[in-house]
């Protein structure tokens, strides 16, 4: 059946098609702009800030990057799939609160709370995805709705159950030790302490990269983001793929929430607001296209690393931390302009 009915002709090279130069190929990589930016920022802070040069500082930067980076992986995949999730920031807090409030109120092993939180986080992702796919309303609006709902519920339920704005300390409860070891422990390399979340971050980036570039599902993710109607026409399960991506964000929100919970043992119910934009910014700086169909998980990781470097570097340099957001804004604009330029150049036929 793979036999083509037309007799094989000697294929003639089209003289109008020029060979792609290696440089052009390199420029085609979505994360290239971010990588150049990251190196530039690293060199810059290395030069201006003394404390930035130590291994301890590197560990701190990596930690800061990982807290953003874990979520940025999910958000980047979702963005490649052509959708947004504005509830991603508060969903982290919701997961952490669910785990801690549930196990505290019902006096269960913390692992019961952890799995309840997982179910809740996945359910939020499913809810977002299902609504977006069924109503065809842009995900920006649907998730803005869930963002507000979760933000309100986080505060209201916490106050209702505890009478205060934070969940209670759960560090003396059953199962805490193991959960703490998995989600929030430290390890040391050459006398410098690193947080376990850095390892998890890199693991998630590796899994997401493999998923995107080496699996069927990855092919579908690019396709549903690039052109959902075309993807559907050739048999890609668009609805399942997109709902799956929202649930992926839910899963990572759960993971990030567990990290938050076991780092501080209690959770501030108002936390997480605004982080959704940091995740999106990390993905965009990393070369993900806002309109979908283009980007990589590694790019999002570089984007998160740029965030971490900027956030800590400005403090190490002794400047007012208020400048962090300013620099992030500059980076975002530079990244979008670079991406546009690179893409136009590379796709010029």
């Amino acid at each position: 059946m793979s036999e083509s009915p037309v007799a094989t002709e000697t294929p003639l090279a089209d003289e109008r098609v020029t060979k792609t130069s290696p440089l052009q190929k390199l420029l085609l990589r979505p994360e290239l702009g971010a990588l150049v930016g990251a190196i530039g920022i690293y060199v810059f802070f290395f030069a201006v800030a003394d404390p930035f040069r130590s291994l301890d500082a590197f560990s701190t930067i990596m930690y800061s990057s990982s807290t953003i980076g874990i979520m940025a992986v999910g958000v980047a995949l979702l963005m490649i799939g052509g959708e947004f999730d504005l509830s991603a920031g508060v969903a982290v807090t919701t997961s952490a609160l669910t785990a801690s409030l549930f196990s505290y109120e019902f006096s269960t092993n913390v692992w019961v709370g952890i799995f309840v939180a997982l179910a809740v986080a996945l359910a939020i992702g499913f809810f977002n995805g299902y609504l977006v796919m069924k109503t065809k309303i842009p995900s920006f609006l649907i998730t803005l709705g869930t963002f507000l709902m979760l933000q309100g519920a986080n505060l209201a339920v916490t106050k209702l159950l505890t009478g205060q704005v934070a969940s209670r300390n759960i560090s003396d409860m059953d199962g805490f030790g193991l959960a703490d070891a998995i989600f929030a422990s430290d390890f040391s390399i050459a006398g410098t302490t690193f947080r376990i979340s850095i390892v998890w971050w890199l693991v998630f980036v590796a899994i997401a990269t493999w998923l995107l570039l080496r699996t069927k599902v990855g092919n579908w993710i690019y396709a549903v983001g690039g052109d959902a109607e075309s993807a559907r026409a050739v048999g890609v399960p668009v609805v399942k793929t997109k709902i799956g991506l929202f649930m992926g964000v839910g899963f990572l929100a759960w993971f990030a929430g567990m990290h938050l919970l076991f780092t501080f043992n209690s959770v501030q119910s108002g936390e997480g607001v605004g982080n959704e934009f940091i995740f999106i910014i990390a993905a965009v700086i990393g070369g993900c296209l806002l309109t979908g169909g283009y980007g990589t998980a590694i790019g999002a990781a570089i984007g998160a690393f740029i965030y971490g470097m900027t956030e800590k570097g400005i403090v190490y340099a002794g400047w007012n931390p208020d400048w962090v957001k300013f620099f992030l804004g500059v980076m975002l604009l530079l990244a979008t302009v670079t991406n546009l330029w690179v893409r136009n150049r590379a796709s010029r036929s």
């Binding site: 092919n219 579908w220 690019y222 396709a223 690039g226 052109d227 109607e229 075309s230 993807a231 026409a233 050739v234 048999g235 890609v236 296209l289 169909g293 283009y294």
Partner: peptide, 18 residues
Amino acid sequence: DLAVVPLMPVWRNFFLGS
């Protein structure tokens, strides 16, 4: 409209969905 995804490589488009 060919049902192809413009930003994806030729071979990925060729096998998309199968």
